[in-house]
Nucleic acid binder design. Structure first.
Lengths: 154, 154
DNA sequence: ATCGTTTTATTTGATATTTAATTAATGCTA
DNA sequence: TAGCATTAATTAAATATCAAATAAAACGAT
């Protein structure tokens, strides 16, 4: 009886924590998305731009791995970014199957204020947490996320 | 100079924590989604079923508030659940505009093993966290999520 | 009581995402 | 080096989601 009782409490705790984690992620995400809407850019597009800004030109394959997107979805996202003049596709001289995506000069200029505004929103979203709390939250999330990746490799 | 420096560190910390939170949420979510795939059910459908299981029959309006979905999307989700025999729509006698969604007997039976398997996956996903860590993570997420909702009301 | 406003659900049209199949290039091996 | 399996990107078709417009019912003020 004791075992079942403990298990049930653990289940409750896990479920509650998962719900709170999801709510937190969703509500911060919603704030960020709303902010991006005014720039006529989607969260997924933003993610791709962020990778290019931080890591420089990358192949579609690498971008897909970083952003955890299916390749076909990535194609349309990059299509749209290219249509809007933010990025450009070029051939990879090392491997002719592979496509390198890079930011255009125009793109870099256009996204700078978007990044800044995005970061500002994020700062406001997290203002309720002290730096200690921020650290702890980050550590626990890292541990949790890492646990899933380990299992995937099994 | 000191002010800018501190701000920059805070920005780094917020950004890193947000990324870790997102990764954790995504990777656990992916595990859960993979698990649901075998039942031919989507995460959104699962969310609706869960609400009905826990709270009993509810109006579309209430379900939409709980699950944070646009009303138009909710209509198609419930359409599909109804098509598959899990739920049924009935008129609300109190308000003829309103539609009440409830689980069918067949639906209750069908989803029971799905819920159990989902909970099991969740237990495994969180097994890396002690009950103290679980509590702390939940509290911090709650604080974070709550901070966004407050601002929305402004 | 009636008109205007609000609420609830739905429809419609546009985007986003996923899955599966396709094309082209590379690497391996025998 | 010829054939086969693998990889990278794309396309096509199905599904999911969102935003805006619509329809029907309820509410509220005068």
């Amino acid at each position: 009886m004791s075992t079942h009782y403990k298990g049930s409490i653990r289940e409750q705790d896990v479920l509650n924590t998962w719900i709170k984690l999801t709510r937190a992620h969703d509500s911060v995400g919603r704030v960020l998305k709303t902010n991006l809407d005014s720039s006529r850019i989607t969260m997924t597009q933003f993610g791709v731009l962020e990778i290019l800004e931080h890591l420089g030109p990358q192949t579609l394959k690498i971008i897909g791995e970083k952003i955890l997107l299916t390749s076909s979805n990535l194609v349309t996202v990059v299509d749209n970014l290219e249509r809007d003049g933010y990025v450009v596709r070029t051939q990879n001289p090392q491997d002719r199957r592979s496509i390198i995506v890079s930011l255009t000069g125009e793109g870099k200029l256009a996204i700078k204020p978007i990044f800044e505004s995005h970061l500002q929103e994020l700062m406001i979203a997290f203002e309720c947490l002290s730096s200690d709390e921020l650290q702890i939250l980050g550590d626990l999330c890292k541990k949790l996320g890492h646990n899933q990746n380990i299992k995937e490799k099994k």
